[in-house]
Design a protein around this nucleic acid. Structure first.
Length: 145
DNA sequence: GCCAACGTTGGC
DNA sequence: GCCAACGTTGGC
């Protein structure tokens, strides 16, 4: 099991829209960055991910799960660009803001801070547990604390 | 809305 | 293969 973080500008694709898709999930298309794409190619079914609102909100709002392995992005005729599908799992009981993450000593190496512009990024297990804890979730069971 | 950071493109 | 120009991301 690996952990990830997906950024989305809420006025383009929000957590509410993601949740409305339910278990069917939705293709995470539109990624045109090699590093982000490579991360998606590494994802496995059942991997968990934070859903982060960029530009507006600037906070982790929920938890999603990979529900389809990397496949060609259907929105472009270019075989360089692949993507996975994700589905919503649960809300963060308390949103974890970028400010909170930056203020945490334990999260100082998190990609959200160090690789600001990367839109699909890996999350280390200890970072996963810590962000979940700050958001009011047990990172292993994903049950409220 | 500005601008810094940084990824990509394309000329040489 | 270098690097300048350019475009995009995303925090502020």
């Amino acid at each position: 099991m690996q952990y990830w973080l997906f950024k989305s500008e809420p006025f383009k694709w929000s957590w509410d829209q993601q949740k409305a898709k339910g278990d069917a999930g939705e293709e995470w298309d539109g990624i045109r960055n090699y590093q982000a794409r490579n991360n998606m190619r590494l994802m496995e079914l059942g991997d968990k991910a934070f859903f982060y609102h960029s530009n507006e909100g600037l906070e982790v709002v929920g938890i999603a799960e990979i529900c389809a392995l990397s496949h060609p992005d259907t929105t472009i005729e270019d075989d360089r660009w692949d993507c996975v599908d994700i589905k919503a799992v649960c809300d963060m009981p308390k949103f974890v803001t970028l400010k909170d993450v930056k203020a945490s000593q334990a999260l100082s190496d998190m990609a959200l801070v160090t690789s600001m512009r990367l839109s699909v990024q890996p999350v280390k297990p200890d970072e996963w547990i810590e962000v979940c804890r700050m958001g009011g979730l047990n990172g292993n069971t994903l049950k409220p604390l």
